[in-house]
Nucleic acid binder design. Structure first.
Lengths: 173, 173
DNA sequence: GAGCAGCATTAACCTATGTTAAAAACGCAT
DNA sequence: ATGCGTTTTTAACATAGGTTAATGCTGCTC
């Protein structure tokens, strides 16, 4: 857990109230954030103003816009606290530097990226092959606690449908 | 390019004719494959028999089922040659071992995983926020050559729609 | 160049989800 | 408990995409 120590010791702890934005789509933000506690949502807003949620971020996960962290482009999504949250911010470039110096950090980075890739693959699978109803049932099964905490609106935006459609799904025969 | 050498020298070269399956959904397959040349598709088949394409794999990319490679579960998708293809197969566990021994290999693995995560993120974004028409236009823009080579059916399965719907999209006003 | 196989298009109808708007339920502050 | 703002549900209608089946096109093979 060398990486954990590095981030906790050298990172900057930031507090965000419910509703506060950590970064916004279009920002330059070269940090990654470790969630000490709280709950957040990462979401896209399309040109027409429609919001869709990429993922919910819980305690002890790491989040950041890869595009922005790698300095390839501005953030592709926004990050907002759904509950009062404490994050530790750490420059991604520094993480990559450290990973070049320390074998064990490099290994931890590999593990984190593998975990990320697995999660993204599961999400891609669901979006590509399941109906909204099936995706909703999956989410309830995978994380019932989370479903209880969220508004219908945020659940719907995560599933890629509207709150109206979600309400129909929940009450259909 | 230490990793490249490792794979080319110690991996096993395999030839697949058009239509041949490299591995099938449900298989145990702990290898990753480097595509020396050719074109392949990675796809899911649902319980009801519907096929959806996860990605097309071109020359010089690396492909494998992460779930299977990490020995967490059987392959979640199948891999099939769309053209006669030459792949070099390499055990994923060995790659992780080597990456523990060599800093530069570990760094290359990080780079590959970062690239993979970026690609998955783009795909997730498209599936979540764009209509089938927009996804089709994106694909044409991003890789017109690929679009020319594929059948309408495979393009549709990649977009998450049917060939009938794709035909409508192409010919609509 | 006739016949066949595989792919692409078209048409008709069906279903899931979107949109808008109104009504109902809930949750908090006083 | 009352009232207000927010969230959820319901309803009515619109649209994208699915399903099935028929038709048309392309390129082989003989």
């Amino acid at each position: 857990m060398e990486l954990q120590n590095l981030i906790t010791e050298q990172g900057v702890r930031c507090h965000f109230e419910k509703g506060a934005q950590v970064f916004k789509q279009g920002d330059d933000c070269e940090y990654i954030y470790f969630v000490e506690h709280g709950l957040l949502k990462a979401f896209y807003v399309t040109a027409s103003g429609k919001e869709t949620i990429k993922s919910f971020i819980k305690q002890h996960s790491i989040i950041g816009s890869l595009n922005a962290a790698l300095r390839l482009a501005p953030c592709t999504f926004s990050l907002e606290a759904l509950d009062s949250s404490v994050l530790i911010r750490f420059p991604f470039s520094q993480l990559l530097e450290e990973s070049k110096r320390s074998m064990s950090i490099s290994q931890e980075v590999v593990q984190i990226l593998l975990g990320l890739a697995l999660k993204k693959e599961r999400r891609e699978f669901e979006l590509l092959t399941l109906s909204a109803t099936e995706r909703f049932n999956n989410l309830k099964r995978a994380d019932p606690e989370l479903v209880k905490k969220l508004t219908q609106n945020d659940i719907a935006k995560y599933l890629g449908i509207t709150a109206v459609a979600l309400s129909r799904i929940k009450h259909q025969g």
